[in-house]
């Protein structure tokens, strides 16, 4: 088990897949000679050459469509969209070509492309470089959406995505490329569906994905240390499809749910998880689920305003305490069973 940074894990996955299969190619802006804005393709141009490591013009819809077309005849393109904000320009090809071609050809064609792109608010990048677009992708039939929260997932999800016959969108985060975690030394394929229990707990489930998993883990530490609340943190690394069984299992155990998301609340991961809870385990609930989401504003440039626009671990702590109505109840450590009145 080696500790490596998120970008290093991505670079390793690229390198291994390029070495294994001559039909794997990488495309994107500055991914070749420059090695990638976030270094995920560092060194690959020198190793595999310009035919396979393709620096593209700044034509997002064009080169995304070109990669999709190549995938129709067996090429396995990994397309990097430098920022998810630019994915808006490639939506036509992602949605209309990649996601629909298997269905509208009656199963004759498939588009096994991987599209990687970082989103999220970073350091004062302003409204047009701070998009959180996961909700846009996850509502589209025919497209898989995964989002790694650590280096192990970044490595294993990319490996599986390259080999999977479906188009896979990998939503990364601009602030996470230097985050370190353990990655298996041997080849590791992360499942493209499911969820992971990042922290086991009894009192409430905090659902996170991508960067919000880390906010949830930080909040869980604070809630455990200062309030005796035992949080379970579930990492929703697959946003499409969402893990209905995993969501149900955790909520059936803790009877409370909070969803933390960096995006605006409307029509998002939180609302979808809430709907699944309603459909799968409504009568297991001891409290109404809550969302901790971004404010519904274009992301401001000003540092203070930017921070206020998106949630943090503090917001999760406050929301949990409010849900558990902590001022009026003893701590869960003392009376953990009382939190589950009516449940066996």
């Amino acid at each position: 088990m080696a500790t490596m940074m998120y970008w290093e894990a991505l670079q390793r996955a690229h390198d291994e897949e390029l070495a294994r299969d001559p039909l794997v190619i990488v495309m994107g802006e500055d991914i070749g000679v420059a090695g990638g804005t976030y270094k995920a393709t560092k060194g690959l141009y020198d190793k595999y050459g310009p035919e396979r490591i393709m620096d593209t013009p700044i034509s997002e819809n064009g080169f995304t469509g070109l990669g999709i077309g190549a995938s129709f005849i067996g090429i396995r393109p990994i397309i990097e969209l430098m920022s998810v904000n630019f994915a808006w320009l490639a939506m036509d090809q992602i949605f209309n070509s990649a996601a629909k071609v298997r269905y509208m050809s009656g199963g004759q064609l498939t588009a096994p492309v991987v599209i990687r792109s970082p989103g999220g608010t970073a350091h004062q990048l302003g409204a047009q470089h701070s998009a959180r677009m996961e909700k846009v992708f996850m509502g589209v039939a025919g497209l898989r959406v995964v989002t790694p929260s650590n280096a192990r997932q970044a490595y294993g999800l990319l490996k599986s995505a390259v080999r999977c016959d479906d188009p896979v969108f990998i939503y990364e985060h601009e602030l996470m490329y230097n985050m370190k975690s353990d990655v298996p030394d041997g080849e590791y394929f992360h499942p493209l569906e499911g969820s992971e229990i990042a922290r086991a707990g009894r009192d409430i489930t905090l659902f996170g994905y991508n960067i919000s998993v880390h906010w949830c883990l930080q909040a869980a530490e604070i809630l455990a240390a200062q309030h005796g609340i035992d949080c379970e943190v579930v990492d929703l690394f697959s946003l499409s499809p969402l893990d209905r069984a995993g969501i149900k299992a955790s909520v059936s155990k803790t009877h409370r749910a909070l969803i933390a998301e960096e995006a605006e609340a409307a029509v998002g991961v939180g609302s979808e998880v809430m709907a699944i809870i309603n459909e799968e385990c409504f009568f297991e609930l001891d409290a109404a689920p809550v969302r901790v989401s971004a404010k519904n504003v274009p992301i401001p440039y000003n540092h203070t305003l930017e921070k206020a626009a998106v949630p943090s671990s503090k917001d999760i702590v406050h929301a949990v305490l409010k849900m558990l109505d902590h001022s009026q109840h003893p701590t869960s450590r003392d009376t953990s069973t009382s939190l589950h009145v009516g449940k066996s």
Binding site: G65, F72, I75, Q93
Partner: peptide, 10 residues
């Protein structure tokens, strides 16, 4: 258009 160019690339 880009799909055709992608097939050509392949």
């Amino acid at each position: 258009f880009p799909l055709a160019a992608g097939i050509a690339k392949g």
